[in-house]
Write a protein that binds this DNA or RNA. Structure first.
Lengths: 338, 338
DNA sequence: CTGATTGTGTAAACCGTTTAACATTCCGCA
DNA sequence: TGCGGAATGTTAAACGGTTTACACAATCAG
């Protein structure tokens, strides 16, 4: 592997000059630039990012901490972030916590070893990051979606409460009065906020209404089990809202398992919306998240912070965006005898 | 940030000793080890991986090149690789090509900047890696799935031809004689091999049979369009095989769009198999890939090569594994009048 | 014409580790 | 007693870049 010295020697300039043309600092003249470019091409020289990062104290690497990469929603966010990073000359290092705080801690440490300039985190719990990782331990970071309670960080997320209200209003208008909400766990701020939105909308609506909130964990099967049980109870809900895509899949399975049909027997509204869901029958009414918008907003905040000397800069921001609600086949008017 | 020097000073030993206890070289005595460990804890010292990598010429970083991370199959592979890597003290850097050679090239360069010790690549085309990247440009690498033709690399993949034959035999036994295979593009070795397996099985079976192979690109909509068109032609197939999960989703949509029912009007067999597919109605008969097995095999090969001085070591290996074929609801006996 | 400024380039220190190569101590054993 | 290893440490030179401080020439304002 040729080094910057080889390039300098071949171009008959100093390594400093090579560095300057490489980094386009503007301190290299036209003549030097030509010679260096030619030398680089001839040698097939490729700079060593580790060496550069060591001296410059900038890695141009941003860590992305996700609960799971096999969940299409997170995969989509990862994809958005990679594109955004490419545009601004950064690389993304993806790491997954598997919904486990211990592992989240471990993975974040791994990112820190590698000197990431910034972090984008979907915390796997709202009890804290990793366990016991504080803002002082981290480079500039933005928290996504969950964990909006950790106020000392910039945060980006859906307007969850509003999303909940929108979904609830839709179902109320269809005549539904008995609701069950299935979410992974109560300690998950995003889902809890969505549920709260639903509750508020029911309250605001006035009339009598039943609302049951059940938890099924982070797996499809868990959600299915929880909802199946709920559907067996008295006062069976006519409307089910699932607050994540995993819960949505579980809900579909539960409804199918009981041989209930949508939307005749029960209406379902899910969260998150992917292309492959179009193959589901019925095609489910869902509150999708604007992945591109969320990612851009987060990226913008992060880049801003990373380009500023630490400590300086504006105070923290908490931005939320509206979901895209699309009414489709899984939600319908409540049956007369429902 | 404290450095190894601060640790050394506090522990009253040399930096070399600190390094030795950090790397467990066995060259540190019990007494020193204790002092150093204490100092590390007190300072909250965290080693700088870039500096270590610069000096040691090992990054303990492996690049994973995927066509797309939003495709659940690749996401699953990524997840497997991350777990495997964690166990052996490596990190994985995931990068996506978006099925584009130009971008694949760019992303691989980015990985090389970061001094990855090895690469695991799902090439986006069998015409070559990146464009014009050769084995000499890369650290130890293993090629996955597609690109089995690039013989100078270790490769891991499904036994695609056998998988095709198995699928075909299943459908032949159900009485099907008219087949359409939908795949992304002919230049994709994995899909082409699967199609060839089907063709061979039909030939081996003897009797008259019709086989049409159509391409729909790498999108669900593309696959849907291609199959819809095919289903409108004369001699409509009674059996459809989709060679990737994207093609499978597209096929389902096409069949739904024409109001055909599975398996009464047409039988469908897909490739790849995920938990969320259980929510599809009918639940599709599919040839799943043993993701864990594939990942372990690739990882084993890669680690072996990485631990050897370059140039040495066994000759290249090409390993294939059998798929998991599961018969479900989307394939059935051909109709009498079919 | 002079002094300041700008443009271009270089030398050398430095970033935080690892790793030869070398030094010391301590034992066991002939 | 003395000698050969282990066992344990240390020193100092890399690793491949970036960046600061400085040098020199050419240009410019007055």
């Amino acid at each position: 592997m040729p080094t910057i010295k080889d390039v300098a020697a071949l171009a008959k300039v100093s390594t400093a000059t090579v560095s300057h043309v490489l980094n386009e600092t503007g301190r290299a003249g036209l003549h030097a630039k030509e010679r260096v470019t030619a030398a680089i091409a001839e040698l097939g020289y490729r700079p060593n990012a580790n060496a550069a990062s060591l001296r410059s104290r900038r890695s141009r690497l941003v860590g992305l901490v996700l609960p799971s990469i096999t969940n299409t929603f997170f995969a989509q966010m990862a994809s958005e972030f990679e594109s955004l990073a490419m545009e601004s000359g950064y690389d993304i290092a993806i790491v997954t916590s598997n919904e486990d705080q211990e592992r989240e801690h471990e993975r974040i440490q791994a990112l820190l070893f590698r000197q990431t300039d910034g972090l984008i985190i979907y915390p796997c719990s709202d009890k804290g990051i990793g366990n016991g990782i504080t803002k002082r331990d981290l480079p500039p970071s933005v928290l996504m979606d969950r964990g909006l309670t950790l106020a000392e960080f910039d945060t980006i997320g859906l307007n969850n409460e509003l999303a909940g209200r929108t979904v609830a209003r839709h179902l109320l208008e269809l005549g539904h009065r008995r609701f069950t909400v299935v979410l992974p766990e109560l300690a998950l701020a995003a889902s809890a906020d969505r549920a709260r939105g639903i509750e508020k909308e029911l309250k605001a609506h006035g009339g009598p209404a039943q609302l049951r909130v059940i938890t099924g964990g982070h797996t499809i099967e868990g959600s299915r089990g929880a909802l199946e049980q709920d559907l067996h109870r008295d006062e069976r809900p006519t409307a089910v809202v699932a607050t994540t895509n995993v819960a949505t899949l579980g809900a579909i399975k539960a409804i199918q398992a009981l041989q209930l049909s949508m939307p005749q027997d029960v209406s379902l509204v899910g969260f998150d919306d992917f292309e492959w869901m179009t193959a589901l029958r019925p095609y489910v009414t869902a509150m999708g998240q604007p992945t591109r918008t969320l990612a851009s907003a987060a990226w913008k905040l992060l880049v801003e912070r990373m380009s500023l000397p630490p400590g300086t800069g504006r105070k923290v921001q908490h931005l939320t965006f509206d979901g895209n609600f699309t009414i489709r086949e899984s939600s319908g008017r409540v049956r007369q005898n429902g």
